[in-house]
Design a protein around this nucleic acid. Sequence first.
DNA 1: TTTTAATGTAATGGC
DNA 2: GCCATTACATTAAT
Lengths: 167, 167
Amino acid sequence: MASLIYGVKDVRPVDGKPIFTIDRILGLDEGERYRKIKPYRPWAVSDSGAPQGRVVPKTKEASDKSSKEKERTLTTQLSTDSYQNALKWYVGRRPRTAFTSLQIEILESIFQVNYYPGIDVREELAKQLHLDEDRIQIWFQNRRAKLKRSHRESQFLMVKKAFVEDD
Amino acid sequence: MASLIYGVKDVRPVDGKPIFTIDRILGLDEGERYRKIKPYRPWAVSDSGAPQGRVVPKTKEASDKSSKEKERTLTTQLSTDSYQNALKWYVGRRPRTAFTSLQIEILESIFQVNYYPGIDVREELAKQLHLDEDRIQIWFQNRRAKLKRSHRESQFLMVKKAFVEDD
DNA sequence: TTTTAATGTAATGGC
DNA sequence: GCCATTACATTAAT
């Protein structure tokens, strides 16, 4: 009964328990129990260790500031957004994942049933869809945000409509 | 000293603090602290309430889909975002903004100093240039992308050059 | 055709 | 986990 979901084969995990049981999909069986240790940005080539402490952003601002500005920069640099942004720019991020339509279809189908799939469902989805569990987690986070946004927007429309009709 | 930038008058915001100070332009004074609630696609005229159910998309794609596409639409309509898409078609895109050369000149001059202007600089630019703050934000986003692209391209050229010289 | 304003969403960091 | 914000890939207007 849980053997086929959108053509995904019912492969069983090492513990031998079934995968897409109702309980698992609904997140009723376990909690978030275990987490893998994740490497720090494995997709980035760290040619000589992670940048820490004395990283100087290579952007223009860094090099041609006036001395007065440099002074201030030194004192506020660590707490500002610009520094963070420059660093971010410099370090790079994970290459954007492009999900296939099938992957999205399946993720959506799970989302319709449960906005908060537990770690085990996510792991299994990851295995079935050939994605990192990380990506799944982020996907659900962003999906929830999207849902929330759409709620806000429809509420806004309703309020606006009420206003107009009150006219 | 910050009173004139490319002929922009030094109008002060309600809080009485100066606008184009170095700190503000460099984004060193605040963080992104507050955000206004944005109205829902204010450029779209929703002439009779929210479109529901029988929305007929107004764009080209909507009318001349192949029958195969239509079929798919029918089967997946209730899942995924087809409703959202219909809404989007109905509502349409924001009309493309055509910046004047003066506006671009000023935006560029700020960009040279700070790739990431904070919310307050953006708001002030918006006021001075008679644009929505949204447009400013998007402009900086696209501008950063352009910069990055040009970096990539020049790097590519350098690598290519190196190859050729190694010949 | 090229450039770039606009969109959707994956990824990041802070709390 | 949420939220705000960003980068990035695309689309479409010029």
